[in-house]
């Protein structure tokens, strides 16, 4: 595994993906689109951490010889990001379940439509069942 000649450009790729995800969660009113943006954002964070694990002239963190730390890349971001992916899928699953319930209740997954229906059903505020 080589590395080093690219300077800080790989980090900018991660930032670009982060910003695409952030834009989607802020700009879109469709709840599914917001979830898609959240997924892009989360994978970009994981990409950033994995970029940090790379060392020049180092190979995969699977030991095949004397344990020389400089010859293998940093295994800690890999282990932590494995956990992050599983948590990411768990949160997406719960979010999708809420999405299905919201659609069953308000017949829409557009934020503004849902807000308008809540306002007509509860003129005194969104409180209540």
């Amino acid at each position: 595994m080589s590395g080093g000649g690219l300077g800080i450009l790989p980090y900018w790729a991660a930032i670009a993906l982060l910003m695409i995800g952030l834009y989607t969660t802020v700009a879109h009113r469709n709840l599914m689109k917001k979830l898609i943006g959240m997924t892009v954002f989360q994978t970009a964070i994981i990409l950033f951490f994995l970029l940090l694990s790379v060392k020049r002239r180092a190979t995969l963190p699977i030991l095949a010889g004397p344990p020389d730390a400089a010859a293998y890349m940093n295994p800690l971001p890999h282990a932590l990001m494995l956990t992050a992916i599983v948590v990411m899928v768990a949160t997406t699953g719960v979010a999708l379940a809420i999405l299905v319930r919201v659609h069953a209740r308000y017949d829409s997954i557009e934020e503004d439509v849902i807000a308008a229906r809540v306002a007509t059903e509860h003129p005194d505020g969104p409180a209540g069942p």
């Binding site: 080589s2 590395g3 800080i8 790989p10 980090y11 940090l52 060392k55 030991l63 940093n74």
Partner: peptide
């Protein structure tokens, strides 16, 4: 990001602080 070390630098704190302990002792 401009303050980060160049990508792939083997002498960053992330590469020399804790992780060598795992790499040398894991087996």
């Amino acid at each position: 990001t401009a303050a980060l070390p160049p990508w792939g630098d083997p002498d960053t704190p992330a590469a020399v602080h804790v992780s060598p302990r795992y790499l040398t002792s894991a087996v």
